Simulated scan of single mutants.
Amino acid sequence: MPVVTGKWSERSTGTAAPTSYVAIGDSFTEGVGDPGPDGVFVGWADRLARLLAEQAPDGFRYANLAVRGRLLGQIVDQQVPRARELAPDLVTFCAGGNDILRPGSDPDALAAQYEAALVELLTTVGTVVVCTGFDTRGFPVLRHLRGRIATYNGHLRAIADRHGCPVLDLWSLRAVQDRRAWDDDRLHLSPEGHRRVTLRCAEVLGIDLPERADAPWPQPGPAAASRRDDLLWARQHLLPWIGRRLRGESSGDHVRAKRPDLLPLRSTRQ
């Protein structure tokens, strides 16, 4: 699962390369869809941490507090205080997606909650990267949430502008509109999808890379899913997800953060 290495551009960012990074969020940041050889999910944030470790020859520390299924309120209550306590140079703050999936969610209220948490983070954290949601136009069922996601994204961009935060804009990442960027459940990224997000975040942070996040896929992608494929997906993935919602359960009920402490991460070529 290689990630292209690159060089930190202090001229682009105006800051030195970070030596500590905390990732907070839900399944997207935990890395669901990108399994490692030991059975633990890897994901874009872990990949980014390894890339950042290449820029810190004197040592780099990394924590990943993300847990699948977490709502914004849970992330704010459980992960934001811990991130503030760890006080790293860099935090990536991706949250709200699971809330948007729920009927009746209010993007305006979610954005207000997100901004309040961001202000708290900035009291001890050097840089916070604000993450937008994906464009779901090509996904059955989820395409109906596109307007709500766009509204939330608009708020997030405005919040980032008010507080001088870089934005990981996933809506504009064309490479993930390809079906190969997604896991079979169509809710989580595939390993290559996670890799593309790593590249985009590295670009946002000012790392000079020989490969671009939106580089064309090597060959044309598969044809659009058939009705039979959609029905199979609904039976295997959508209905169980709905069942958990009706029972008040979450896929992360018995899951703990995979890297809860700022621990050293060696510089390795991926």
Rank of each mutant, 00 (worst) to 15 (best):
D99M: 10
N64E: 13
W182C: 09
Y152F: 15
S12K: 14
R148D: 14
R137P: 00
L239F: 06
C201P: 00
S190T: 11
L145V: 03
F60S: 02
R259Q: 14
H144M: 12
G243S: 11
V40Q: 15
W171N: 06
P220Y: 02
G69V: 08
W182I: 04
P260S: 08
A158H: 14
R212T: 13
T92D: 11
G31D: 08
G69N: 10
W182V: 08
Y152A: 14
H155K: 13
F139S: 04
D183M: 10
P264I: 00
G243F: 05
R61W: 03
F93Y: 15
R247I: 02
I207N: 06
D183T: 10
T136I: 00
L156H: 12
F60V: 02
A95Q: 05
D261E: 15
S250W: 04
L51T: 12
L52K: 05
D108K: 11
Y21D: 09
L173S: 07
R84N: 09
R180M: 02
T268F: 07
A202C: 01
G6P: 03
A234F: 03
R84F: 00
R200D: 03
R227I: 12
R82G: 00
S172L: 10
P18R: 11
A160I: 10
Q236M: 09
D229Q: 09
L189Q: 11
R61K: 14
L231S: 05
